[in-house]
Nucleic acid binder design. Structure first.
Length: 586
DNA sequence: TGCGGCTATTG
DNA sequence: CACAATAGCCGCAG
């Protein structure tokens, strides 16, 4: 650790930095570190090999809220083993305020300074453009981060900010300017009083994402490979052998076809022709459709089995294991805190859509357990909370809220469930239509909340979730399509908007729960290893298994109280302590 | 080579 | 077979 450390801590103290105060941070390993406070009381920059070490020191002494341009900073810290408690993630807050996906510094800066996004300068080819570049520079500060037109310099944005300690200091200063403007913008959202709280939990979720990407999901390679072998056979030793296995799988289906009828089973069109050859006419060849005609011809069953094997061969086979499962028995993907639409967490490497069969290979380390918890009926409970429907809220006192809803509607439970889900997804036709009318009279507040969202989205008007996240509604070019198509598109937007408010609020609540668990679990070495929309998988020392289970339940109540302070809606979770993910009962 | 369509998996 | 996502392969346009 550098000699500068005690000094910098003193400087923060002198500047009056306390627990939870905003301190903007820019780090570049091997170069240095810059820090600044929004009120200008502190601005430091110095060279240091391991900036994360300095951050760690300050974190232990003061625990400020670290302002970061994006979770790249969180990743640098976490890679160095430094896990800060709280942050203000500028990119995450930008997505909250303005929706969409783009959140790079140039874009954030422009938007908060009322500059149009299409005037953002792009990086120029070095030799061609240098002569013109001078025109845009600020004569008083030619190498500075700001251009005369107010935009950030593309040279700075594209890595120039980390070239020297001085530049890191200025980069942190700019971040501290941005955070103040973001706070003002959040406060101006009068219809979304929760927005500032959402900004903090979404920021913490970015810290969690950086850690999830680094930690990975415990997975036993031997068990995973055995499972793959059971389904598609042993690992091929050459490309030729792989092709042989592939052909052998194809034969198992094609031997049921009329003599000479060949088809590429990977081509939906050719499969349709193949089926026509055995007297089966279908609009598409999806599994649920073929399942209903399994008895019609032995080829159908063979084809469905082929599909399952093919899925493992192409997506979750040996190549997937080799690419994503590291030597330390961790399956790693890249996590993002908020997708473009409704704000759910997403992950690559198939972490969110891994076949359930693969869960047998997700095994806790020796001496450890998984504590798994999944929220029960999260979307209808969230609907009750965000719409403020007292009648629907009363139903949430039950573990199974569909039971009282069914009683209220005078229908059976299955019908009630389909009706509620249909209302949230926008189904207006078919079997659900009758029960939907009953729903409207029993829960008018919740149903009109959904209908309003539907109507606004149909009119391409942007929406905000309960937590304040903007759901932008793209306008489609209606004069390029028929009247019928235009109506279909509007209806699709309506369904999308209706669902986005429920799914989006549920995602925000889930993240608040997750970051609460992250904060409280640290003291017993409990680490979240998977977030699955309404389910948390926590890896913890076996001795603490039951305590962590209780902690997950406590954190849920804490999150519920902070998120919807009137406590009218009850949230429930199913919690179990297990050694393998597949041991959880569903 | 890029992209829309189809398919499968998860919540 | 509604809402969301990631991911692979095929077929077609350029």
């Amino acid at each position: 650790m550098s000699d500068a450390d005690p000094g910098v801590l003193e400087e923060l103290r002198r500047a009056g930095v306390n627990r939870g105060d905003l301190v903007a941070l820019a780090v570049a390993p091997g170069i240095g570190l810059g820090m600044a406070t929004p009120d200008g009381s502190l601005s430091v920059a110095f060279a240091v090999d391991d900036p994360s070490g300095v951050v760690h020191l300050i974190e232990r002494a003061l625990r400020p809220r670290w302002v970061m341009w994006s979770n790249e900073t969180a990743a640098i810290l976490a890679n160095a083993g430094v896990r800060v408690a709280t942050s203000w993630d500028i990119a995450a807050v930008r997505r909250l305020l303005f929706g969409g996906w783009r959140a790079d510094p140039a874009c954030v800066w422009a938007q908060l300074h009322d500059l149009t996004l299409d005037t953002i300068p792009k990086i120029a080819p070095p030799d061609l453009f240098n002569q013109f570049d001078d025109d845009t520079r600020d004569p008083a500060d030619p190498d500075g981060p700001l251009r005369r037109d107010g935009h950030l310099s593309p040279e700075w944005v594209n890595g120039g900010w980390r070239e020297s300690p001085e530049r890191l200091g200025r980069w942190a200063q700019l971040a501290s300017v941005v955070v103040t403007r973001q706070q003002i913008a959040l406060a101006e959202l009068r219809d979304s009083p929760a927005a500032a709280a959402t900004a903090r939990s979404e920021s913490a979720a970015e810290l969690l994402c950086a850690e999830l990407s680094i930690d990975g999901l415990p997975m036993d390679r031997t068990v995973a490979e055995e499972l793959v072998a059971d389904i598609i056979g042993p690992r091929p030793r050459s490309d030729a052998e792989a092709a042989e296995q592939r052909a052998a799988r194809d034969i198992e289906v094609l031997r049921h076809a009329p003599l000479g009828a060949g088809a590429d089973l990977r081509s939906p069109g050719q499969v349709k022709s193949l089926l026509r050859g055995i007297g089966i006419e279908v609009p598409d060849t999806r599994a649920w459709r073929l399942e209903t005609m399994r008895d019609a011809h032995p080829l159908i069953g063979a084809l469905l089995a082929w599909r399952k094997a093919e899925r493992f061969a192409t997506t979750y086979g040996y190549a997937w294991i080799d690419e994503h499962l590291a030597g330390d028995s961790r399956l790693r993907g890249t996590w993002t805190g908020s997708d473009g639409a409704a704000g759910r967490m997403t992950a690559s490497a198939g972490l969110h859509n891994m076949p359930a069969d693969m869960r047998v290979a997700v095994i806790a380390d020796p001496g450890h357990v998984f504590v798994r918890a999944d929220l029960g009926q999260i979307e209808p409970r969230v609907l009750a909370a965000v719409s403020g429907d007292r009648a629907l809220a009363r139903a949430t006192v039950e573990d199974d809220m569909y039971a009282p809803v069914a009683q209220q509607l005078g229908v059976d439970r299955a019908t009630a469930k389909v009706a509620v889900l249909g209302a949230m997804y926008g189904q207006t036709t078919g079997h659900g239509a009758h029960a939907l009318r009953r729903l409207e009279s029993a829960y008018p507040v919740a149903m009109s909340y959904l209908a309003d969202a539907d109507l606004a989205a149909q009119g391409s008007r942007a929406l905000r979730t309960y937590g304040g996240r903007l759901i932008p509604m793209g306008t489609t070019n209606a004069n390029e399509m028929s009247e019928r198509d235009a109506r279909g598109q509007a209806a699709a937007r309506g369904r999308y908007g209706r669902n986005a408010l429920v799914q989006g609020a549920a995602a925000e609540f889930f993240k608040l729960w997750a970051v609460t668990v992250r904060a409280r679990g640290a003291t017993v070495n409990a680490r979240i290893v998977l977030c699955l929309h309404d389910e948390l998988l926590v890896h913890a020392p076996a001795d603490h298994g039951d305590a962590v289970g209780q902690l997950l339940a406590d954190c849920l109540q804490e999150a519920a109280h902070r998120w919807a302070p009137d406590n009218s809606v009850r949230f429930v979770a199913d919690i179990s302590v297990i050694r393998r993910w597949s041991d959880a009962k569903d």
